[in-house]
């Protein structure tokens, strides 16, 4: 690859990020100016000052996505193992595709009644449970190809060597699956992080994730705050991507 192509490619990848950062620092941008007429840190000061509630949205989003990714990854890892070795594996696995038959919003509409009855409507816990309906089956499908006869034999070997099921998980299965677990966690974090339909419908605006804030600013035509929220939206996934790359690819 030539130096020019490399620079062009890097520029192409970085352009949207640089553009969003530029917009977040702008104040007025009348047509046909190429750049905003005023530059200011006031939008960022708003975030740091907490008056726009964006700091709270960052916290809610991080907490929600970390919880969803952690719960779904660990639960789907455990459940997928049982499905993989079950005589009716295919039937169980086909159930995991069920939530994807509908769009997330339709799924949320179907579940809405049950969430109201359970008192989960418009709560953090409700959004968390709603997102699990999408992320958990995804995790099960993700891990379904991970389990095989070799791993099963390893697990049996641990038992004949004197280990319990918990020790088989802690000392062999989890360390062997570390790369897959990290990748699944990362993907589920992203699904949760950028989730809009379910979060909006079940959260009814009371669980203000960053993704919801971006859509809110866009619908208000507040491009500067929308850009700022987008910048914040990108940072955690980028950090996680770097971490994922550093751990998984170094081991690979």
């Amino acid at each position: 690859m030539s130096r020019f192509t490399k620079i062009a490619l890097i520029g192409l990848i970085l352009f949207p990020f640089a553009f969003l950062l530029m917009l977040s620092l702008g104040k007025q941008w009348p047509y046909p100016a190429i750049f905003p007429e005023q530059w200011s840190l006031s939008n960022w000061q708003l975030v740091l000052g907490g008056s726009e509630g964006l700091g709270n949205s960052v916290l809610v989003s991080v907490l929600l996505s970390l919880s969803v990714a952690t719960l779904s990854t660990s639960l789907s890892f455990w459940v997928s193992r049982h499905i993989a070795y079950h005589p009716k594996r295919e039937a169980w696995l086909s159930l995991a595709y069920f939530p994807y038959v509908f769009a997330p919003v339709i799924l949320a509409a179907c579940l809405q009644f049950f969430f109201i009855v359970a008192g989960l409507y418009g709560t953090f816990g409700g959004v968390l449970v709603a997102q699990l309906f999408i992320t958990f089956p995804y995790g099960v499908i993700f891990f379904s190809s991970f389990w095989n006869e070799r791993l099963r034999s390893m697990e049996e070997l641990v038992k004949t060597l004197g280990g319990s099921t918990a020790q088989a998980y802690a000392k062999v299965l989890v360390p062997v699956a570390k790369g897959a677990l990290m990748t699944c966690f990362f993907q589920l974090f992203l699904i949760s992080w950028f989730e809009y339909g379910l979060t909006n419908l079940i959260g009814v605006g009371k669980v203000p994730t960053l993704t919801l804030r971006v859509f809110q600013y866009v619908s208000e035509a507040n491009i500067f705050l929308a850009a700022l929220a987008s910048c914040l939206l990108i940072l955690p996934p980028v950090a996680l991507l770097w971490l994922n790359r550093a751990v998984v690819f170094r081991e690979g």
Binding site: S153, E156, L157, K159, T160, L161, G162, G163, S164
Partner: peptide, 11 residues
């Protein structure tokens, strides 16, 4: 159970 038998199975 297998983990208390002291019988090791080698593949």
């Amino acid at each position: 159970p297998a983990n208390q038998r002291g019988v090791v199975y080698l593949y």
